[in-house]
Design a protein around this nucleic acid. Structure first.
Lengths: 355, 355
DNA sequence: GTGAAAGCGCTAACAT
DNA sequence: ATGTTAGCGCTTTCAC
C-alpha cells in the first residue's frame, strides 16, 4: 500500500506513467477506456501518490504552516479548531509551530517586538525549511503586529491580531460595537452610574472597547465621568483593586463593565468582600466568555469572541490565495456577541429615585 | 535565500555536491580547510537544504504527526505544548491533525470505538499521505484504546491514554497513588466521614482513583461505607446531584473527594445551596486542576496532572524510536501532584467528640 | 490522445 | 578524502 509507485500502476494498466499522472491529476484528457483501466488498478492496489515526490516536482507542499504565539493561551485552541475544520475539506495539511511566548511575555505584550528574532527564525523554518505554501500567524493578544512578520514571498494571514500594512491579510473580531451593545444592555436595565475597568489603556482592544462605551453613553444622553473609568492590566488582581477604589469613591457605581472576564471576576471578589452582592447591589459584565465565567457565582454575563470563525476564515483566505481565487476580502472583522448570564440585574426606578 | 541549491554551494566553494552533502550531514569526514570553505559559503548565502528533496532521497520526512482527539479538550493544549518543547530541540517538525471528536462524543467516551473508521482514515492520511515518520496519538480521556489504532509500520506513541497491547507505547499519568495521597491529606486533617463522588464507574480513572481511596482508608484503619460513594458522570451537574443526595442521607460527610474539578464544583454548588459552608462545614477536593478551580470561591484544592510532561515524554520516545536508541521504557506513568488551596479545613477533635 | 524522457534537489554507493 | 553519478517518484514538455 505504501511502496507502490506510479510505474507499477502504469505497468499494470498497460499505459505510460504520464497517462497515469494525467488521470490522477486530470491534467490532460485520457481515453475513457484507458482511464477506467488505470482507475481500477489504483483502487485495486490502494495506490497513493508519493506526496514528497509530487512536492519536489511541483514546488508545492500542500502544507499550511500555523505559527501560534502560544497554544496555552485560551483563545488559540478554538482558532486552531476553526482552521482545522476548514482545512479538512481541502487537500492541505497543517504544520504546527508553537512560539511558546506565554512564559516570556506574561501580560507585557507590548514587549512582543523583542520576540522578533524568534518569530523571524521560526517563520524562516516554516517557509524555507518545511516549505509550507502559506502561513497563518495566530496571535495571543489582539494588537497591531505590523512589521513583526518579515516579508516572505508567500501568503501570510494573521489571525486574532491586525496589521496596518496595506497588503497584509488578517481576520480578527469586533470590539467597539459589542461594547456599545453591552453598555446599552446595562443602560436599558436602568443603570446610569456605570463604571468601566479598562485593560491596559494604550492597547487596541481597550481603546476600541472604550470607544464603544462612549458611543452608547452619548446615544443615551449620559455622561461618562472620568472618575468612573479605572485602568487595570487585564489580570484578575487589577480588577479587584480597581473595584476597591471604585467602592471607596464618592459615587459608587450600580454596574461595572470590566474589559475582560478575569478583571470582572476580580471585581466580583472585591464586591463580595465589601459585603455587597452581585448583581443585587452591583451588576457586572466581562468580556471573552472564558470558561471561568461559568464557574464563578453568580455566572458572569459577558461578550463572546467567535474564535472558531476567526480560524475558519483565516484558513479559507489562505487556501483561496493559494488557488488564486481570493476575492480581495483580506481584512475581516468577525462580529462578537453577548452571552447573558446572571450578573446583571434590572435597576428598579424606585431605587434610583430614592438615592 | 530560497532558490539556492546544493550545486550552487558546491560551485561557489569549489567542491562537489557530495562534499557539501558530507559537511551538512556529517556523513563523511571532510578536510578542515574545505569544510570551512563550504560552511562559509553556506552562511554567506543563507543556504538551506531543500527538505523535500532530502525526504525523497532518504525516505524520511523528519515529521511527526500528532493526531489529537480534540484540541478543545482542556488536557490537549498542554500536551501539545510539551511535545512542542521537546521537538524544538530536534530537527523534527509537527504535523497536526485534529479529529474534533468532542461534539460527536460529548462525555460518552465509551462510544469511542465507533470513531474507529475516522481514526483509521486520518492515520492513513498522516502515514501514507503526509508520510510522517512517527505519530503521537493524543487522547482526550484516560482510557484503554487497544485496537483503535491500526497497525502501521512506524512508531506510534499514545499520550493520555493507555493500551493493553504489549508492543504499544504510551505515556499517561498516575491516578491511584495521588488519590491515596489526597485521602491521607483529608484523614490527617481529622476527617473520617469522607464521601467520594466518582466519575463514570466503569472507567479506568474512576476505578484507579477509587482504589487509591480504599488503600488510604485501609491504611488508616477506616472503613469506606458504600453509602458514602456516589456515582457521577464527570459533569458538574452530577456532582451537584450526588452532593444533594449525600446531604440528605443519614450520615453527612465532613469532607468529599470528587473525582474531577467539575463535579467538585457541582458539589460546592449543592453545599452552598444547603446553606452550608466550604470548607467550614464540608471540605472538598477535586481532580485535574482545571482553570475553574482557581475561579470558584473558595479556591479548590485539587490534584494536578502533569500534562506537559506527558507530551514531552511522548515526543522524546517518538524521537528516540526514530533514532533507534529507545531504551525500552515504553510505558510511562507520570506522577501527579496535589495543589493545595482553600477548600479543606482541619476537622477539630472537639467537633468530632461533640458529634 | 499518448509516451519518452528530462529533471526537481538531494544522498550515497562506488570509484578513485 | 573527494568526486561522479544514479536515482528517489513524480510531473510535464515535447514529439508523435
Amino acid at each position: 500500500m505504501a511502496d507502490i509507485t506510479i510505474r507499477d500502476i502504469a505497468k499494470a494498466a498497460g499505459v505510460s506513467t504520464a497517462t497515469v499522472s494525467y488521470v490522477i491529476n486530470g491534467t490532460k484528457p485520457v481515453a475513457p477506456e484507458r482511464q477506467k483501466r488505470v482507475l481500477d488498478v489504483i483502487t485495486k492496489t490502494g495506490y497513493l501518490p508519493n506526496t514528497v515526490a509530487q512536492s519536489l516536482r511541483t514546488k508545492k507542499t500542500n502544507t499550511i504552516g500555523i505559527l501560534v504565539e502560544d497554544i496555552l493561551s485560551f483563545s488559540v485552541p478554538p482558532i486552531i479548531n476553526g482552521i482545522s475544520e476548514y482545512i479538512e475539506n481541502t487537500d492541505y495539511r497543517i504544520l504546527l509551530n508553537d512560539l511558546r511566548m506565554l512564559n516570556s511575555l506574561y501580560n507585557r505584550y507590548d514587549q512582543i517586538v523583542h520576540q522578533g528574532e524568534k518569530i523571524n527564525q521560526e517563520l524562516m523554518f516554516l517557509v524555507y525549511g518545511a516549505k509550507v505554501d502559506a502561513v497563518i500567524y495566530v496571535g495571543m493578544f489582539d494588537r497591531d503586529i505590523s512589521g513583526v512578520i518579515p516579508n516572505i514571498n508567500k501568503p501570510v494571514i494573521i489571525a486574532y491580531s491586525t496589521s496596518e500594512d496595506e497588503h497584509t491579510c488578517f481576520v480578527t473580531y469586533e470590539n467597539e460595537n459589542i461594547s456599545a451593545e453591552m453598555m446599552r444592555y446595562l443602560i436599558n436595565a436602568g443603570h446610569e452610574k456605570i463604571a468601566v475597568i479598562s485593560g491596559l489603556e494604550h492597547t487596541p482592544p481597550a481603546q476600541q472597547r472604550l470607544r464603544g462605551v462612549q458611543r452608547a453613553f452619548e446615544e443615551a444622553g449620559l455622561l461618562l465621568d472620568n472618575h468612573m473609568v479605572k485602568n487595570g492590566d487585564w489580570e484578575r488582581d487589577s480588577g479587584y483593586h480597581c473595584m476597591k477604589s471604585l467602592l471607596g469613591s464618592a459615587h459608587k457605581p450600580t454596574a461595572v463593565f470590566a474589559m475582560n472576564d478575569l478583571m470582572a471576576i476580580g471585581a466580583m471578589d472585591a464586591i463580595k468582600e465589601a459585603g455587597l452582592s452581585v448583581p443585587g447591589d452591583i451588576s457586572v459584565v466581562g468580556f471573552d466568555n472564558r470558561d471561568a465565567s461559568e464557574f464563578v457565582s453568580p455566572k458572569l454575563t459577558t461578550a463572546e469572541i467567535d474564535l472558531k470563525s476567526i480560524g475558519y476564515n483565516a484558513a479559507q483566505i489562505a487556501v483561496e490565495k493559494l488557488k488564486s481565487k481570493n476575492n480581495g476580502k483580506n481584512k475581516i472583522i468577525i462580529p462578537s456577541k453577548m452571552v447573558l448570564r446572571e450578573t446583571v440585574k434590572k435597576q428598579s426606578c424606585e431605587w434610583r429615585e430614592q438615592s
